[in-house]
Design a protein around this nucleic acid. Structure first.
Length: 118
DNA sequence: ACTTTGACTATAA
DNA sequence: GTTATAGCCAAAG
């Protein structure tokens, strides 16, 4: 009898964020704002970042390392255990990172709203 | 119920 | 090009 719904925060907004993140192709990156816009809630970019804090607690795993800020800066690198972990994960996918910033950001950038509507 | 926070972003100087 | 400031909104304390 499905009467008790916990309705944790992750069930709505967070989960939606995770869904988008999982769609990011390997070797590509996107930004918090792009995800927020894809959800139709422009201005919730900071919440996307907040959601990433819990990303490691959900399943399936979320490739949070593929989410950077609008400048291509690895602003969340301090949340990957070691400060270099995020960069290593990206480089393992062929993404060049220099000075905590994604190289050729425009080329590897993946816009959910744009790519998903094609 | 109110205050603070935060892995952001757009604009101004 | 950089740095400073304001706006943003939902979750956590």
């Amino acid at each position: 009898m499905p009467t008790k719904h916990k309705h944790m925060a992750q069930d709505s907004f967070f989960e939606a964020v995770y869904e988008i993140c999982r769609l990011i192709p390997r070797g590509r990156v996107t930004s918090y704002g792009a995800i927020a816009r894809c959800l139709g809630t422009t201005g919730t970019a900071r919440m996307v970042g907040w959601a990433m804090n819990n990303a490691h607690t959900v399943s399936p795993a979320v490739p949070a390392h593929r989410v950077v800020n609008r400048n291509g800066l690895l602003s969340g690198k301090h949340h990957f255990g070691t400060p270099t972990r995020m960069q290593e994960l990206l480089e393992a996918e062929g993404i060049k990172v220099e000075n905590d910033t994604v190289c050729d950001f425009k080329q590897v950038f993946w816009d959910p709203a744009k790519e998903l509507s094609l």
